[in-house]
Amino acid sequence: MPQQEPDERRAAEGAIDSSRPTGEGTVYKKLQGYYCVNAGGRSLLCTISSTLRKNLEYPVAAPWSLRPRVVAVHKIRAVDPVAIGDIVRFTDSGDDTGMIVEVLPRRNSLVRRAAGRKMLQQVIVVNVDQVVVVFAATRPAPNWEALDRYLAAAESTGLPARVVITKMDLVEVASVEAETGTYRRAGYPVLLTSAAGGVGIEAFREALHGR
């Protein structure tokens, strides 16, 4: 096998180094085509590498190979390969922007089937400690069917879940208690709150503490 010249090899190694991740952080917000990553208190606006949108399979090759040959391409089963809560590795452009090049293994994920004919998953959030489903008691009226779907999604992944109802100062407590009694009997903690009246706020903080 012909040996590379020193200058050629250094150029190849430099190209590889520039594509290697230089930082690690957590995705906390998604914008259209961009991802906000918190890296040790620093916020970066990142795009993602095109290779994350497909799974590429390479043969074993020399690490300085400039043109690695792809032997297979596998479709991903998710609408977006990066989700809120993902711990990612990225290349840092030096101006508070970067490119996500790797998604680290997830502890868990909350998913639902994406709209459309294709059998794709839409990942809502990952690496979750608990699921807190928040609904207003009125204005707008609570959608109990949507609440059921969120709780079912949490159950399917083994995540603990609780229900929080807000704006309790605008309704009769008895009417909400009647609706939420089913969830209490099923074992879900239900918290009735009112920001205007300061009701249930401290208990809500305690439920979120350390999570």
Rank of each mutant, 00 (worst) to 15 (best):
S109E: 01
A61G: 06
G98H: 00
A146T: 15
P63Y: 02
D148Q: 10
V60W: 11
A141R: 04
H74D: 06
E145Y: 05
V88M: 00
A78N: 12
A141W: 04
N127E: 01
A83C: 02
Q121D: 15
E57Y: 13
D92L: 07
G158V: 03
S156F: 02
C46R: 02
P105T: 10
R139P: 03
R89W: 05
S49M: 04
A141P: 03
I48Y: 13
A115D: 12
D129T: 01
R89M: 04
V126K: 01
V134A: 08
A153G: 03
D96E: 10
S109I: 04
S65Y: 01
V126W: 01
W64L: 10
A137Y: 03
D92N: 10
N55V: 08
V131N: 04
V128M: 09
R117G: 13
R69I: 10
P68W: 14
Q130D: 09
D95P: 02
P81L: 02
T91E: 05
P68V: 10
L66E: 13
Q121P: 09
T157L: 05
V133Q: 00
Q121C: 13
S49Q: 08
V125T: 08
V60D: 10
I84W: 06
G158S: 05
V123N: 14
V133H: 00
P59Q: 11
L120F: 06
S49P: 02
A115K: 11
A115H: 13
G98Q: 01
D80I: 03
W64A: 13
A154K: 00
N143I: 00
V134F: 07
T97L: 11
S156H: 07
S50A: 10
Q122Y: 08
P160N: 00
V60I: 14
D92T: 05
A114K: 11
L56D: 08
K75Q: 15
V101G: 06
